[in-house]
Design a protein around this nucleic acid. Sequence first.
DNA 1: TAAGATTTGTTCGTATGTATC
DNA 2: GGATACATACGAACAAATCTT
Lengths: 254, 254
Amino acid sequence: MTAPNRPPAKEPRRSRPVRVADAIKDWVVERNMAPGDRLPGEAELMARFGMAKGTIREAMRILEAQGLIETRTGPGGGSFVGEVTADRAKALLANYFYFKDISISDIYQLRRALEPELAASLAGRLTEAQLAELEQVVAKYPEPARSAEEERDQHVASLEFHRTLANFSDNALLAFVVSFMGRILTDLTVYRRLYDPPNRELYEKGLAYQTELIAALRHGRADDARRIMRSHMETAEALMQRQEAQVLRRFIAE
Amino acid sequence: MTAPNRPPAKEPRRSRPVRVADAIKDWVVERNMAPGDRLPGEAELMARFGMAKGTIREAMRILEAQGLIETRTGPGGGSFVGEVTADRAKALLANYFYFKDISISDIYQLRRALEPELAASLAGRLTEAQLAELEQVVAKYPEPARSAEEERDQHVASLEFHRTLANFSDNALLAFVVSFMGRILTDLTVYRRLYDPPNRELYEKGLAYQTELIAALRHGRADDARRIMRSHMETAEALMQRQEAQVLRRFIAE
DNA sequence: TAAGATTTGTTCGTATGTATC
DNA sequence: GGATACATACGAACAAATCTT
């Protein structure tokens, strides 16, 4: 009882470039190709699929847009299997949430759940070089902010602390999600002008938490790391909510 | 001190279709366009950008591949702003993890952290219709599996339970991440043939947990829901790890 | 049902740009 | 600098899909 000859089905009939793109993708997967491996040139693809140059090129662009291939001109040029970068993956995913409107609480519901576990799982497993890198990020904001711009820069830097930490995890899934949320928060900060009024409280608490956290990570105190991060998340969320309310109030008042 | 005239920079010089795609994207964002809104036709774009048809079409394919636009032929046809679907977003994201190899523990590190919170946050907030939908999913596997195939189908159905639950959340971020992990597990199940040996233990425990969970959700017992889900996650992970070890052993033995 | 209008889809031939040797 | 090997881009023509009358 295999698939019976299905009628025209409901499929909206994909265009040739899309079908070619799929075929090439399957071809790469079947042959277990790795990033950097070379794909057939345009001429050969035209012959293999019996299609014109334009059609093939559209197919290549589809694959390129997804980060699956890279293309270079010149001798020795051509198309090559590409590894999707984290940045590109985040950008593509951000498109999905563009029309969804995400709230601060939505983001923190995830951060509250994930970041403490991340911190705990890294305790005692970071090299001295990695710990130094974290300390360096913290050192980027040794003074409380005096202007809205400085405040914003500090917030972005503080988010960088979390992203740096996330990337130390050998769990690519966890690292990506945490890092992605950092990116959304950064966008919100820059784009929606949160943090307009300098907020000394967040600065001081953030600094203290991150310093404590590094110590706990260095000495392998997993439970402490989790507790510190959890507490940090709760504080940060509360402060951001207040900021957001202020911004909104001001926005309405204008 | 605005951006100084930067030298050629390092950018690898993007091709025309890519630049056109970016321009169109910016244009859509600036004008705050919504899904379904119409974009200029090929002819007009050719004129506006002063480029040939092929170039414009490649740009459109780039946008289409990201789910940002949809295109139809015929009168009244053309390109329209599209809303990226959850499925497409998952597929694009899956490409990123293709070369990353994710382990069962990686996935469960996230599930353990997220699903209990998800369950707790939904307790007492589901309609009777939604609860019925969950019960319907559970009813899909009223009997223990007798063959490897049945087992696999049951596992897929059980993952569907979690995805259904996730989609009831009004936190789009949380819903997406949980649902995405369900998808990865499904792929692993089907593709790597985990669960080959029917596993009565997982069946019985899974069924019991899900039934208890629905009751807790219905009566608004958030803490119970969290506890049940956490416990379920731990059991499921342990069983999957064992299964994976068995599959691997068998694979090596062959 | 059929014809016509509109818009994207596809092809082909040719010319240009770019990196390597 | 010139030859070579590739992708990049153009333009004109024709095909196919789909809506309207």
